[in-house]
Design a protein around this nucleic acid. Sequence first.
DNA 1: CATGAATGAGCTTTCATTCAT
DNA 2: GATGAATGAAAGCTCATTCAT
Lengths: 224, 224, 224, 224
Amino acid sequence: MSIVSPPPAHDAHSKRERRKEARPGELLQAALELFVEKGYAATRAEEVATRAGVSKGTLFLYFSSKEDLFKAVIQSNLSTHLMAWNQEFEGFEGSSADMLAYGLTSWWTQIGSTLAGGITKLVMSEARNFPEIAGFYEREVVKPGQHLIERILQRGIEQGEFRAMDVHHVCMSLVSAMMFLMMWKHSLGPCSATNPSFDPETFLRTHLNTLLYGLLQPAPRGTT
Amino acid sequence: MSIVSPPPAHDAHSKRERRKEARPGELLQAALELFVEKGYAATRAEEVATRAGVSKGTLFLYFSSKEDLFKAVIQSNLSTHLMAWNQEFEGFEGSSADMLAYGLTSWWTQIGSTLAGGITKLVMSEARNFPEIAGFYEREVVKPGQHLIERILQRGIEQGEFRAMDVHHVCMSLVSAMMFLMMWKHSLGPCSATNPSFDPETFLRTHLNTLLYGLLQPAPRGTT
Amino acid sequence: MSIVSPPPAHDAHSKRERRKEARPGELLQAALELFVEKGYAATRAEEVATRAGVSKGTLFLYFSSKEDLFKAVIQSNLSTHLMAWNQEFEGFEGSSADMLAYGLTSWWTQIGSTLAGGITKLVMSEARNFPEIAGFYEREVVKPGQHLIERILQRGIEQGEFRAMDVHHVCMSLVSAMMFLMMWKHSLGPCSATNPSFDPETFLRTHLNTLLYGLLQPAPRGTT
Amino acid sequence: MSIVSPPPAHDAHSKRERRKEARPGELLQAALELFVEKGYAATRAEEVATRAGVSKGTLFLYFSSKEDLFKAVIQSNLSTHLMAWNQEFEGFEGSSADMLAYGLTSWWTQIGSTLAGGITKLVMSEARNFPEIAGFYEREVVKPGQHLIERILQRGIEQGEFRAMDVHHVCMSLVSAMMFLMMWKHSLGPCSATNPSFDPETFLRTHLNTLLYGLLQPAPRGTT
DNA sequence: CATGAATGAGCTTTCATTCAT
DNA sequence: GATGAATGAAAGCTCATTCAT
């Protein structure tokens, strides 16, 4: 169940040929790890090749340039979990607040905290240099994700759980927390010895709770 | 009306000296533009110089290295604002909620909506490759910024406006919205024609309101 | 018959591999020539590469920096000889005076009269600017060289050939002659048409003889 | 009695004008010190100017280039002490051995150990790049120096103190010790923590004594 | 197909030299 | 004359890309 889709191994082929077919996937996996770890520019083509167990030259046999490799890495790794979540949404029975909590938790476990989270950071970092990728990412990830969250919010309103709201912008508030976590995990976080106690899951829970319950004292509410 | 270094007030100086005083500001402005536009690593030192109307060598007359230039860009565009805000905080008379609203608005007007907002995206993107800059940014911007917000939240609690909360994590919720805006504006935003209706100021207001008042219906409160 | 790295003995290799094995030697030879001719600082890395028949980049494939190249030049031209001489010393049967004579002659034949002699001049010239190289030279060449000479002198004393002496300083007297020759050959010598009759080998022999037998008339000895 | 010839100070001139006339001398002095200390290439033109108390531009008012400055430094500092010694030689009454000892001692005190010694090292280091200077140095310093030493040796032979010898080469043996000292003092010496006990004057004395008395045991002399 | 030696454009930084003031 | 801001030619080093083997 690797993020990278491994090619099916026809068992009639020799080991060597199977190896050959796996090459692109191995290279993509190596590239993914390194790009996430060090960034696109700072990753040398040879490193990718070495980690994939091939030589520099071979890399360029499968990808015409480093840029091409980058695009392939991103695209091959954006088969999002969104479809699964969409289905879960359809059958969910609990409150919409629970749904959000469940969604955020799942997201962090399955995406945010994994290499896939690094891809988001990568895409954000390189978007300006690779507009094509930015567009792809928005179409494949951002849009569907927003749609799902907005549906949950809408459901909450319709069921009387949530008060009326600007669904789109509230959705962004939720998304912002997720993006924040990914950027932190892959940018400043690793560079700072501070905030060592910062715990993503606690943050997510706090964020959601604050959004749900608000900060103001119940008492003086009507007063303001 | 540049954010960077005010024009010289002395009028007795020769044309050349006036140029000299203006140089650092011109270079910082050029660097800011190019860094935000193309990224730090992808911007050549000579480009910065050229855009500032000087030669390569002159850049290094004012900044000892490209990295030094980057730091100066951060400092002149962000650090200074933080100091000003800290002072405003001291004299602020209104409610803490107003204070947050005022702070977010000021931030958007003076930083978020300007090129300076791109610096954050820049730093996040390059942090792993330039740990020293990451450290510098954390020391000069993140820490002071968090400190300021947390003080406001604390003030709200002490004055009975806000309920007890995990100050640090709530602070992050506010920060996440700002960071989200900056990433959006400088990463995916410019690359996608979609979300044209997305309005940062409305988003900020919505975000703050949601944090303050919560999403849940007042009625079922306490029930959940 | 180059001093540097013997030609490959393996004959099963392809043309390309044979080149690869020869490269370091070719580069070292080119570097030696240019360094001696123009000085270390005044020699551009690319010149060395060009003279060795390769491109700039290739040089750095074999030597991680220009300084590294310099060290390798020292090592391949001087350090190796010292080790050989140390071994010869162990098996030498003749008188210590003969040993000195043999040593000086060998030195002149194998180092002093060759380009390798220029290295010493080179190191002396650049020592202040490249302390690390100076240290390297002292560790690799000066120390072992002095040690060898002092051992010979010591042997002479112990065998009753030489009278008691300040071994270290007498060693320096021998070294000074060698250094003088190298400085002369590579500094003033080539620039002056004078002293055409100056013959290094005769000088060395005279120097050693004078050191051995002294200048004073045997008669008035003890009187002074 | 500075090594650098200070221009005569006409007292009718104003202080400023006197300053102006002194400029070249001050620049030469500053350049001398820095060239000796750091070498020609490693000394920046601006450093020289700063040490002389003027600006970069002014340096080029007096010397058309750094190279020109270098030549001027060397030439203005080679007014050797040889004339004085030649005169002392004429009137010397003691033994020729004493004369050599006295000469070497004086030389070290007045030249070898001073900045002038550094000039020699400088000349040796840069001779290949400045053949003109090398020639100048040989004519003005080397030749007269050799001539003086050879005359002393000749006198020793004629007076029956010394045995017959190859005067020229023995002269070189003496010179080699002096050159060795200067190179050591200005090259490897300052870079090596080793040989801390190395004392130039002791070395010179030992060197001369060894040359005079030889190393071999008096007893087995006729035997060899 | 796979390799890895070789390439060379490209980048940051230095510093002698110029010239407007 | 004096100044010092500005210049731009180098130089060391990296790394994506090529291609002979």
